[in-house]
Amino acid sequence: MKHQVKTPEGNLTAWMEFVLWGFADVPHLQWFLFGMFFVIYMIILLGNGTILVITKVEPSLHTPMYFFLGHFSFVEICYVSVTLPRMLMNLGTQRKIISLVACATQMCCVLVLGASECFLLAVMAYDRYVAICNPLQYPLLMTHKVCLQLVAASWITGIPVQVGLTFQIFSLPFCASRVINHFFCDIPPVLKLACGEKFTNELMVYMTALLFVSAPFLFILISYIKIISTVLKLPSATSRAKAFSTCSSHLAVVLLFFGSAIITYLRPEASHSAEIDKVLSLFYTIVTPMFNPMIYSLRNKDVKRALRKLLGK
């Protein structure tokens, strides 16, 4: 269960397992929450799985924009599958114990997939920028090879940094408490249990958040400023409406995902509250994956046409 280690601060308990507290403070809502999150998980799998399938099998959607959308939906499925099944198991069995290795693995997967999601959203913004601001060069700039390279870079770039950050956090000694007041092993609640000098780790968290969250978000904002500037110069109201419609879905997902992630990881440590962190985490781990297919399918004629065609078959 635990073993004792000597440190300059004295005797500390190095826990080999933690307790994921989750929503244990509302015991009368456990089964309601289980049912709600189970339905949400099924909606996420069905919605994003449908987007993934139709972007693969429908020839009219074999374009860079839908190529990136398909990969984004796949990331969403992986991302939510790292956290929701464990949360459902905890709610259903009331067994909240998670080993140190499992906790570290979950955190690492969340960070790697989160970084991939940030970069994919930035890549999708770049795709829209080239399509609207440089339409004549679009076929030359966004070839299939380039699209594959951009997707591969989105998947791979964050792995070494996020693995290193996870190792650094879990190399810290932990204090007597082993209760993680969260529904998954996220950085802020885990760091609260650590003892000793944490400044270096907190600095690494901020630097990583700036690199993998703020930088892509800033890139997306700059891209959309240029896109909006170009769209407003279009002579036809129909052309402006069409251009805005292709960007509005992506922009809605960006604001939902990045807004909650930036507030969670970049606000001062003193202002962190366990309950607020849980609510914010629900947005970027569950709400965004759930609304992603709805936003894209409800506002996109190509996706709706492909879906009707697939269901007709």
Rank of each mutant, 00 (worst) to 15 (best):
F67M: 01
L61G: 05
H62E: 07
G35H: 11
L84V: 13
L46W: 08
S60P: 00
F74P: 10
Y66Q: 01
F68Y: 13
L52R: 15
L69T: 03
E76N: 14
L46V: 05
N90V: 13
M42D: 04
N90S: 12
L52G: 09
E58C: 09
L52F: 15
V53L: 15
M89K: 07
V39D: 04
P59R: 00
G49M: 01
M65N: 01
M42N: 05
E58N: 06
Y41D: 08
G49C: 06
H71N: 15
V82P: 09
I43Y: 04
F34H: 06
I40H: 13
M87L: 08
S73M: 06
G49H: 04
P64M: 01
V75A: 07
V39G: 08
H62D: 12
V82I: 14
L88K: 02
M89V: 11
F34T: 01
G49F: 06
G47C: 00
C78D: 11
F74D: 07
L61K: 05
P85W: 14
L91E: 04
G47Q: 00
Y41C: 03
P85L: 11
Y41S: 08
I54V: 15
M89S: 11
F37R: 03
F68K: 07
I77N: 10
K56E: 07
Y79D: 12
T55C: 15
F34G: 02
E58Y: 02
P64N: 01
T50V: 12
G49P: 06
P64Y: 00
L45W: 13
F74W: 10
M87R: 06
P85E: 13
F38G: 14
R86C: 01
K56G: 02
R86G: 05
L69C: 04
Y66C: 04
T83H: 14
G70K: 00
M89C: 08
L61M: 04
I44T: 06
C78P: 03
M87W: 05
L88A: 03
S81P: 11
P85V: 14
N48D: 10
P59F: 07
L45T: 03
E58I: 07
V53A: 11
S73G: 13
F38T: 15
M87F: 11
L84Y: 09
